[in-house]
Simulated assay, not measured.
Amino acid sequence: MDGMMEQDEAERRESVRMIRESAAGLVPRHGDFARVRALRYADPGYDTAIWQAMGEQGWIGLRVPEAHGGIGLGMAEACALAEELGQALAPEPLVAGALSARLLAAAGDDSLLPALLQGRSLVLTAWQEAPDSLEAPGTPGAPRLFLPQAAGAETLLVPVAEGGALALYAVPAAGQALHLQRTQDGGNLGTLVPDLAGARRLHGDVGAALAVALEEAALVTAASLLGLMERAFAMTLDYLRTRQQFGKPLGSFQALQHRAADLRIQIALSRASVEGAARGLDAGAAPDRASAAVSRAKARAAEAAMLITREAVQMHGAIGYTDEHDIGLFLRKAMVLANAYGSAALHRNRFLEKADPLAA
């Protein structure tokens, strides 16, 4: 039994390593940010060629079962991928696209899912009706909020409460009342007032599938924040080693060393929380325990990312506050991701509700 467990763990580590390598080949973590800057404040806000390449790599369907055209990997791999993309500040809406892929697979769809998995289209799920929420009431006719990179969506999935269940409808984005707003990082968010006249009903009840998909989206977003804070911290350390003041590197000053040590601890705690939650979901943890672990990871990652990116800007001095310096891109992205799929406050409250006080 121990030998089998060790083999499973070795295979899991190898799978995670391969995912990281594939990500590094497409969006290098140590590359520059010319691509990211070129896509800011322009529609659709991401690179459609990179989106298609992500589909070809299998990333959009990473959590979709093989029977539905995905590759059926676990949350450990999904979080490793998100961490790498967070390092590169990739603007492509992979989390939202993967959520839609999970729903389409659960609905048994064979019309929209293949093109989404191949990155030839973007399908977004209009589930959110209130700010700072992780619930999908499906209120008929209610505006749906915060659709990421909605300027590029071709199809919108709309969950609607019907007879005690949550039905799923598909509508073409063209012709829908979709209002776009710019985000701090230069992307866009859409608000949809759904018109289901002529919509196609895909399934009568996707409530359970959507709940699982939202849990996974929250955890993957935490992993994105982990990658983001790691890169911002590494860039700051490099700056402190090279920038001179009073004839000495800034990094030689004890006050800055203490601040850097505190930030390193926050990164380590965030990593432990994200990886622990991923292991729990992959091992089939009980729903409340899994939700508590996800909330702990998202709350910690959101708060740590905001702290670290703000400190990074401050440690860069005046140049850190200019838009021309790349360190500010990390703070802007953190401001967007910190509240996606639930803020730190929401997840702290949910952790208190779900956590077992007697659990080890």
Rank of each mutant, 00 (worst) to 15 (best):
V336W: 08
V158C: 06
R264G: 14
G284N: 09
Q176H: 05
A338R: 14
G204M: 00
S133H: 03
A106T: 06
R332S: 09
A170M: 05
A255Q: 08
A232V: 14
P143S: 08
A130R: 13
M4N: 07
H30W: 09
Q7K: 09
L113E: 01
V95Q: 07
L225H: 01
A208N: 03
R17E: 11
R144Y: 05
L352F: 15
M335Y: 04
E230G: 12
A302H: 03
D282L: 08
S100K: 02
L226Q: 14
A80P: 08
V95W: 13
R332A: 14
G61P: 01
M235F: 07
L104V: 00
G164S: 07
V336L: 08
M4W: 11
L189D: 13
Q257E: 14
A272H: 07
A197P: 02
Y169I: 00
K248D: 10
A299S: 15
G198F: 10
A278Y: 06
L192I: 02
D326S: 13
R348H: 12
A170V: 04
L166D: 14
L156K: 03
P65G: 10
E6N: 03
S111A: 10
V294L: 09
A101C: 04
D195M: 14
D282V: 08
P114M: 03
V64N: 08
L103V: 04
L39S: 11
I19Y: 01
S22V: 03
C79G: 14
A232I: 05
F246E: 15
V16N: 01
S252L: 13
L214Y: 04
L337D: 15
M5C: 04
L346V: 09
F146H: 14
G276S: 03
A217N: 10
R17W: 09
R259F: 01
R201G: 01
D205Y: 01
S133R: 06
G247E: 12
D2T: 15
T236F: 04
G119P: 05
V212R: 15
A305S: 14
V171K: 00
P93H: 13
L352C: 14
G164Q: 12
R102D: 10
P249W: 03
L116H: 00
G25P: 01
G25K: 01
P249M: 13
P137Y: 02
L104S: 05
L189W: 14
E21H: 11
S111K: 03
L240A: 13
V16P: 04
V64T: 09
G58R: 06
A78C: 06
A213M: 06
A360Q: 12
Q57S: 12
T125D: 00
L329S: 02
G328K: 08
R259K: 13
R102F: 00
R17H: 10
A355G: 07
L180G: 01
G86W: 02
A222D: 09
G198W: 02
L307V: 06
Q87D: 03
